[in-house]
């Protein structure tokens, strides 16, 4: 397992290089002048020139690229134009917030998505299946920021169950955390639950058609036992692979959801950076998120291999 993990990490290295290159190009290729944004409104031409020089934007492409990687090796993602704070520091400060809410959302997704998917598959073609399928599809089809706004109106204003926004760290007050994190986590989860339900249902249906399940049933095992012991275990494998996709969608969603609920996480940080045209922050944020996801996916791969030994032998794509 250790060797496999190492191998996956080595495989990920060139990908990491490409990701960072894409992030660099994003800032390099923009038609606007980040120095103008950095210098602030009303700055004179020499001030802008000075800022451009300080940011290294007046140097040739190769030099800028080299500097970018030199700084990257030291964990330096540049400095935010708006916050006056290193990008890496700003991101790390907010990462726990996004992490906690994402985890919360992920737990909700897995519990509800699995339950709904299994229920639908076991009661294939029944009314349970129909309802679950429709609701799951709706979850995938609704704009989640729109849902978030509707949730604020219903659950905060009309019913008064949750605050409209803000964030309390779980280390400060667990109750406060539940109050503030629940609506963002649910808004984020709705899309994922839809995804996971659909996949679980499809996989489960496949598994239930397999011979060994038929054999188990034929042996007279109770339905609960068949589903619980035999089917579920085999359903888990493909589902682990979906977690990577779910995490990716989660992080995307956090930009709008954190903005709507005024949650000070990495998503809101990026959302604000976009509004303020804080280019180093956009670049650094994207790079950070992509790299994190990549490493998470490596982790999932390794986990997957632990579940299913065939993968280790199979190696890469055909």
């Amino acid at each position: 397992m250790g060797r496999h993990a190492l191998w996956r990490l080595i495989q990920a290295a060139p990908l990491l290089l490409l990701i960072s290159l894409i992030s660099f190009l994003l800032l390099y290729l923009i038609p606007g002048d980040p120095a103008l944004v950095a210098a602030g409104p009303g700055a004179s031409a020499d001030v802008v020139a000075q800022v451009r020089h300080n940011m290294g934007l007046d140097r040739p492409f190769a030099v800028q690229l080299g500097l970018f990687y030199a700084r990257l090796l030291h964990g330096d993602l540049g400095r935010s134009l708006v916050l006056g704070q290193p990008v890496a520091e700003a991101i790390l400060q907010r990462a726990p917030v996004t992490l906690w809410i994402s985890l919360y959302s992920l737990v909700l997704t897995i519990i509800l998505g699995l339950a709904a998917g299994i229920a639908a598959a076991v009661r294939h073609n029944s009314w349970v299946d129909q309802i679950v399928s429709v609701v799951a599809l709706l979850g995938v089809s609704l704009p989640n920021f729109w849902l978030a706004l509707v949730m604020i109106v219903i659950f905060s204003v009309q019913l008064g169950w949750f605050p409209t926004g803000g964030y309390v760290a779980p280390t400060t007050s667990l109750a406060g955390w539940f109050a503030t994190a629940t609506m963002p986590a649910v808004a984020l989860a709705l899309l994922q639950i839809g995804l996971l339900t659909r996949i679980t249902r499809a996989t489960m249906l496949d598994v239930l058609r397999q011979d060994y399940i038929r054999t188990a049933r034929a042996k007279g095992l109770g339905e609960a036992l068949v589903v619980g012991r035999h089917a579920l275990a085999n359903t888990m494998i493909p589902i682990v692979t979906v977690v990577g996709i779910i995490l990716s969608v989660l992080l995307s969603g956090s930009v709008v959801i954190e903005t709507v609920f005024a949650v000070p996480g990495v998503g809101a940080l990026l959302g604000n950076a976009i509004l303020a045209r804080d280019y180093p922050m956009i670049q650094g944020g994207l790079l950070f998120v992509a790299a994190t996801l990549l490493l998470l996916n490596v982790g999932i791969d390794v986990l997957y291999a632990a579940f299913d030994p065939r993968v280790r032998l199979g190696g890469d794509d055909p």
């Binding site: 604020i152 109106v153 905060s156 204003v157 409209t164 926004g165 803000g166 903005t259 005024a262």
Partner: peptide
């Protein structure tokens, strides 16, 4: 910092 007007007024009404 509550830049969403709807959320801001809602928070005032709920007393947050």
């Amino acid at each position: 910092m509550t830049s969403e007007p709807a959320a801001r007024t809602a928070a005032l009404e709920t007393g947050e």
